[in-house]
Amino acid sequence: MANLWRKLTYHRGNGWWNLPHTASQEADPPYEGPIGGAWLGNIWRTVTHGGVSHAGPGFYWLVGLFLGVITLLEVWLFTLQGLGGLYIPILLGLSTMKFVAVVAFFMHLRFDGRLFTYIFAASMIIGISMFSLLLLLQQFGNQVQ
């Protein structure tokens, strides 16, 4: 159990969601992909100019393409009009992907000091949970009326 936990959470293990340190602090930054895995890491290395600290234009174009495609997908889903209750969750999922892509790669959070991630994530977590609670409360209020 403890072993699994360590595997999941530590960077040097297989914990791909664990954030790297500031690249400049490491003598030999590991060529690890943004979402982990060796095969991805190889592609990653080629598009990011060696993977050190900041990615290259090829990778940025890729992310830009990704953003465009997702937007297109969203608009297509909108024209579909047949998803019912799945429509909103799917849209929220897609926009979260766009959001994360911009924050992680365009804003360099994936390559930058962890403190920045903590600061931004903390305010996002507080904001989202608090405002979700507010929406929940308003929903309850409506039902009572």
């Binding site: 409360l137 309850f140 209020g141 009572v144």
Partner: peptide
């Protein structure tokens, strides 16, 4: 500092938010 964000409705108990809230 963290929990302080999730107690605000105790200022509004008499508003009528419902028993669950």
């Amino acid at each position: 500092a963290f929990m302080g964000w999730f107690v605000w409705s105790h200022h509004m108990f008499t508003v009528g938010l419902g028993p669950a809230a």
